[in-house]
Amino acid sequence: MQQLFWALGTVVIGVVGCAGYFYVSNLVLDTLLPGRGPDPVRAGRNINRANLIRPWLFLAPAILALGIYLVYPVIESVWLSLHDRSGQNFVGLSNYVWMLNDPGFRESMFNNMLWLLVVPAAATGFGLAAAALTDRIWWGNIAKSLIFMPMAISFVGASVIWKFIYDYRAPGEPQIGILNALVTWFGGDPQAWLTIPFWNNFFLMVILVWIQTGFAMVILSAALRGIPEETVEAAVLDGANPIQIFFRIKMPQIWGTIAVVWTTITILVLKVFDIVLAMTNGQWRTQVLANLMFDWMFRGGGDFGRGAAIAVVIMVLVIPIMVWNIRRANAEMKGH
């Protein structure tokens, strides 16, 4: 409890500190270059000068935070990836050479590609289906809310939930995991799902799909509602049935949004770590890049060079999406 009060105290200090910074720095600027005064021409000149400085006052803390926590690490990671485990001695590209020859890395890369293929497609697909269907029924909003719910659950929490579903007991014992219960009910043999190589990847992906479908649904649903009603009505008059309307009229109008959803989930997939850590910790051939990096970072004293090299690979994979995003944002701003 005491800790909580202490935390609240820091919140107050932090907020007051931040607000104070903005207020005081602004005040100083206004005092040095007064914008009001007997001589309006001079005041105007002061205002123009102050307007050159003020944006940077407003931006400074944010730029500092972005610089320290995101920009510097990217540069530093590249630098570290060219050094040995302690980060002291330059080793050139040997970390990358090691990586290419490392079966663990190849396995992770393969699994990551698998994730990239399956999860965005599945989540977007389910999301689109859910969006299209829930918009047509009276209890659609409740349904949406429930499908959206896993979004609030942590990856670790979701992992526990699904581990419970995949729970395995020896044949003959009562199965308390619902998947094995169903399998035995249909007369099959219970399986230890998470230990079946290759296929266990899919059992992990299900979790992320389960979490992300709601996200896809919410955004695609808004996009579907943004479609001008007239185009749909025109299609009805042209004799199209609901399925034709969906695929021939609605879908083509929301391609842009589908792409946004797809790429957003793709980025998430590249960073996926918690689920693998909690479910299998990379055992049974389920390793992925982010977890592999974490392994090299901390297990056995840590190898910063190799960890950083893997981080750089993740970054490189993200760059195309980054470029695409920036272009899209620029185009949007020009259209403003």
Binding site: G35, R36, P40, V41, A43, G44, R45, I47, N48
Partner: peptide, 11 residues
């Protein structure tokens, strides 16, 4: 009668 080019809107 006063030059206003650089004067801020409020003034």
């Amino acid at each position: 009668g006063a030059r206003m080019n650089e004067v801020p809107p409020a003034q």
